[in-house]
Structures are given as structure tokens and as C-alpha cells.
Design a protein around this nucleic acid. Structure first.
Length: 511
RNA sequence: GCACCCGUAGCUCAGUCGGUAGAGCAGCUGACUCUUAAUCAGCGGGCCGAAGGUUCGAAUCCUUCCGGGUGCACCA
């Protein structure tokens, strides 16, 4: 390639560059670089890379300062994305960012060499490069790589979001999460922390001899929760299939099988609307402990969450937008009945139906005539009590109708032996003394379907194999579930589930 | 599903009473060998989310649709 040729090509580019399409501009720049013999999507150099952070940490005045001869200074190879350029003519400052952070580059024409300097000048913000050189400290005191060698690794064809304001449009941030991650360090931090939370949950349970298992996500019968499933079709078997709404019924089979401590930490799918608190696929932790019950699982949950919080956040005090949550142990445990009387009046359960509705009215709760006492109480609880439960509290012995599939309390068949863990005004985790009586379980499943006999149930609505597993004998067990996305939201003080899911679901854009 | 709010350059945002589009960053050209939101001079960039309507005239007013946000409902 002759100089004349490249000069002519550059002049052509100048004319075309007058257009407004920045991608077109970059495509032409790419061709220009290729015409100069520069590989625009090249292989990484066979060198040992140093991260930006390592480079900072390895800088010492003695080795790289003024006193040391230039050729004696150690050379570093780094790779990353150019995020800024400050052009001074015969020298250029630039910012390089890798996973560990940012470091400044200094390209000087008479050090880098004329050809390489010219190539460097052609690079765009967003390009990915490998660079090499010694470290020095600028007059303003910033540790900087003095470039002696560069290689373009990846040409970027798109303009990055603005350096100062970044990407703020929520829709764009979620549709193009990679741009969000490039632009917003707080977002990078949230997802690093999320990964740490998940890692700590596993470490905690593994340490307690719980066994992580994987059960079907593709199920012929979706069970274990009351929710609308996603439906799909298995061509080879010519049968409809469902994405699981919960792993519960399979995990319980494993208890029958003799695995005494199991957990699964993975995705569930529910065919529901999107909201600040709902994504159709969400990450669920379910834990089952044989020979345990509601209380043993309560202890486990308390220890799990405090351990995770302490290890990830380094504190048990969480600041959210409006609250400060203190996770210090021990956590309060209160019977549902007592909690209700504490907040709604000691006489709440002695009131007549009419009086109860009138009092609900004072909380601006509207009741419909067909609502039962339990439903009215629960409505008032959800609207007026739960949002104000900031520090963790286990609510125990819930009314049986609210939790149809749990074991009844020995001392009071009107209530079930379960807990709801609430903090930051949100339900975080339910736990149960699991029902292991196959006869009662069958009865409850039928009731849930609103029928009296198996014959009345539509074919395939009852998971007979699950009931069979119970008939072989499932040990008494405690079980617990945590919505991991919501736990992460709470721990990180974020108020939308989409902020803790890398690729939240959004509507397809048509046209 | 219902209600309210939002959609203007690659990004962040102005745009008054309806008179036909502006800035900063990014980009391009030039100057500058320690800058750091570099600076200075100049230049280009728009189907104003889409389609209808009202009007002499619409980014602006009306209707429908698309997408997003928030609240409610559904839902753990």
C-alpha cells in the first residue's frame, strides 16, 4: 500500500464522512485501517496480561520513578476498551478499561513511533486494544502506561453512550444491557454482588451437608405452587409440556429416595404479568431437610441470610431507599394471631363480622360480602401490617386456609405449622413443616382443584407419582423457599426486580 | 387487564401562546508533546416513536396504535 494510495483514500473518506451516519463513518474507518495493513479483528497477543488494577498495585516509585533508567523499568501488557481520548497533537492521552477498572494511556509520537501513532489516532472510543509499555506518574500524579506498542483487537462500529451522563433510559439499559454495563459502574457492581450472593448461598448450604440437585424444568404436570404455567410441546413424545412453576414435588420425591438434605437453586417460570416485583422467569432457592420441621428450617433461614449478608455486604445493616433494616440476630418470631391482635386490636378475633368490616373500613380496606373472616384479616394484614415490618420477623402458625398444602399444627388444626419471613415490608421466604401424609395430601390436592374424587379431576391434573412417592413414605421434613431475585433486591436496596436480572423480559418491539 | 406519565441527533437533554429544530457530549477538519468532562477555531448530523385527523400551518392540539415507566389488579 503506497502512501499516495492511503492519502487518496483518506481524502475520499473525508468527503463521505461529512454524512451523519456514525456507523457508516466507522465502517469506512475500518476499511481505511485495513488498507494500511491493520488487522481490525485480530488475535490477542501471546503475552502475559496485567489488569489495570494489578498495574496500579505494582507501580512503585523506586522501580518506575524518575530515578530509574527508562529501559530498566518493567513493561506491562494490558487489554481493554478505549473509553476516552484526549488529543494533544503529538501526544494523546486515553483511558483504557478492563474488568478490573480504568487506567490512563499516554501515546507520544516520538516514543510510539510515527506509524503506530498514526494508527492510534485512527482508533475510536469503544475500540478494544492490547497495549504495552512502562508505567509512569504524570505531573498531576496519575499512574499511566507510556505506550511503546499497541494492537487493535476489535474495531467497534457503534458509538458508545455519552461519557458523562452514561445511559439512563431505562428501556435502553434493559434492552442493551451490555451498554448499561459499559456505562454504569453501579450496575456492574449490582451484578457482581448478585453473583456473590448466589455463591454464598451455595457455600453455606454445601457446608451444612445439603446436596444441590437439578430436577426437571420441563414437566408433564406443573405442580408445587398455585400459578399459571408456560405451556410448550415436546415433539418426540407428541405431548404437551410445561415449564415448571416450582421444583417442590420433585425435591420431595428425593426425600422419599433417601437424600435427607437437598436444595435446588435455579429458575422457575410463571405465566404472569410483569411488574417491579415480577419477572416471568425468576430464580428460586428451595431447601428440604428431612427429620426437621418448620422451626429447624427457621433457624437455618436466619443463619443463611445473615451469613450471606455479612459475607457479601460486610454488615447486617441494610440501607434501602426509605428504610434501614437491621438483620442482627435473633430475629423476632410471632404467631400470626398475636401479630394481628397487636396491630388490629386485642379484640379483633372477638368482633362480629359486621364490627370487623367496620374496623377494616377505618384502614380504608374495602371488603366484599363473600369475604371470610380469614380473608378480611389477611387483606388488612397485607395492606397495613406487612409494609411496616422492616426488621426481620418470622410469622408463624398461619390460618390453614391461607396455606392449603402445609401440615396442621398439633395444638390447633385451624392453623398450619409454617412461617413467613418478612423484612423490609416484603415477604422474603416461606417455610413449612411439610405435609407427608399421602391420604391428606390427596384430599388437599382434590380440594384445590375444587372436586371431591379423582374421577372428577381432569385427567392429568393430579400428580399421582408424587402421591405414590408419599405412600412409600417421605420422612417428616422442613422446607423453605427464597426468591433469590427479591432477596438480592432487598440486600442491595434496589426497588425493581429488573435491576437485579441481567436480561429482564420486555415486550418485543414490532416494526 | 385498568389509570396516570413519558418517547426530539449515536448518548444526555432544551424546544414558550400552534409559525416547520436547538445545546452539550460523541463525530469530522485544523491547532496544540503531561491531558483527565482537556482546550481553542470551524463543519456535518433529525421521518420530533408510528399512522390518521383538526388547521393556511403541528414536535406542540385530538384519535388510534407501538414501546417504556409508575400505581392498581392478577400473582408468592
Amino acid at each position: 500500500m503506497t502512501d499516495e494510495h492511503t492519502r487518496q483514500e483518506s481524502e475520499e473518506n473525508q468527503d463521505l464522512d461529512a454524512g451523519g451516519d456514525l456507523r457508516e463513518q466507522r465502517l469506512r474507518k475500518l476499511e481505511d485501517l485495513q488498507a494500511r495493513g491493520v488487522e481490525v479483528f485480530s488475535d490477542p497477543p501471546d503475552k502475559t496480561f496485567t489488569s489495570a488494577q494489578q498495574a496500579y498495585e505494582s507501580f512503585t516509585e523506586a522501580e518506575t520513578g524518575e530515578e530509574t533508567e527508562e529501559e530498566d523499568k518493567p513493561r506491562f501488557t494490558l487489554a481493554g476498551r478505549l473509553t476516552a481520548k484526549r488529543d494533544m497533537g503529538k501526544s494523546v492521552f486515553a483511558d483504557l478499561r478492563d474488568q478490573s477498572g480504568r487506567i490512563q494511556l499516554y501515546a507520544k509520537k516520538n516514543i510510539l513511533g510515527e506509524d503506530a501513532f498514526e494508527i492510534f489516532n485512527l482508533l475510536d472510543i469503544g475500540d478494544i486494544v492490547a497495549v504495552e509499555g512502562p508505567l509512569f506518574k504524570t505531573r498531576k500524579g496519575e499512574i499511566t502506561v507510556r505506550l511503546e506498542w499497541i494492537r487493535l483487537l476489535t474495531k467497534s462500529l457503534r458509538t458508545l453512550p455519552e461519557k458523562w451522563h452514561g445511559l439512563t433510559d431505562v428501556e435502553q439499559r434493559h434492552r442493551h444491557r451490555y451498554l448499561d454495563l459499559i456505562s454504569n459502574s453501579s450496575v456492574r457492581e449490582i451484578f457482581r454482588k448478585r453473583t456473590e450472593v448466589v455463591r454464598e448461598i451455595r457455600a453455606f448450604l454445601d457446608d451444612k451437608d445439603f446436596m444441590e440437585v437439578e430436577t426437571p424444568m420441563l414437566q408433564p404436570l406443573p405442580g408445587g405452587a398455585a400459578a399459571e404455567p408456560f405451556e410448550t410441546y415436546y415433539a418426540a413424545l407428541r405431548s404437551p409440556m410445561f415449564l415448571r412453576i416450582a421444583p417442590e414435588l420433585y425435591l420431595k420425591r428425593l426425600l422419599t429416595g433417601g437424600f435427607e438434605r437437598v436444595y435446588e437453586l435455579n429458575r422457575n417460570f410463571r405465566n404472569e404479568g410483569l411488574s417491579r416485583h415480577h419477572n416471568p422467569e425468576f430464580t428460586m432457592l428451595e431447601v428440604y431437610q428431612a427429620y426437621g420441621d418448620c422451626r429447624s428450617v427457621m433457624d437455618l433461614t436466619e443463619e443463611l441470610i445473615t451469613t450471606v449478608a455479612q459475607n457479601v455486604l460486610g454488615t447486617l445493616c441494610i440501607s434501602t431507599e426509605e428504610n434501614t433494616v437491621d438483620l442482627s440476630r435473633p430475629w423476632e418470631r410471632v404467631r400470626y394471631h398475636d401479630l394481628i391482635r397487636r396491630h388490629l386490636g386485642e379484640d379483633w378475633f372477638d368482633l362480629t363480622d359486621q364490627q370487623r368490616r367496620e374496623r377494616a373500613q377505618t384502614w380504608e380496606i374495602t371488603t366484599s360480602p363473600e369475604m371470610t373472616e380469614v380473608e378480611i384479616t389477611q387483606e388488612v394484614y397485607e395492606k397495613t401490617i406487612e409494609p411496616n415490618l422492616i426488621n426481620p420477623v418470622f410469622i408463624t402458625e398461619l390460618p390453614a386456609p391461607l396455606v392449603p398444602l402445609a401440615k396442621k399444627c398439633r395444638n390447633n388444626p385451624e392453623t398450619v405449622d409454617v412461617f413467613e419471613l418478612v423484612f423490609n415490608g416484603q415477604e422474603i421466604a416461606p417455610g413449612y413443616s411439610e405435609l407427608n401424609d399421602p391420604l391428606e395430601q390427596r384430599q388437599r390436592l382434590l380440594e384445590q382443584l375444587g372436586v371431591e374424587t379423582v374421577e372428577q379431576a381432569e385427567e392429568g391434573q393430579i400428580d399421582e407419582d408424587f402421591l405414590t412417592a408419599l405412600e412409600y413414605g417421605m420422612p417428616p421434613a422442613g422446607g423453605m423457599g427464597i426468591g433469590v431475585d427479591r432477596l438480592v433486591m432487598t440486600l442491595l436496596g434496589v426497588d425493581s426486580i429488573r435491576e437485579v436480572i441481567l436480561f429482564p423480559h420486555l415486550r418485543q418491539k414490532s416494526g
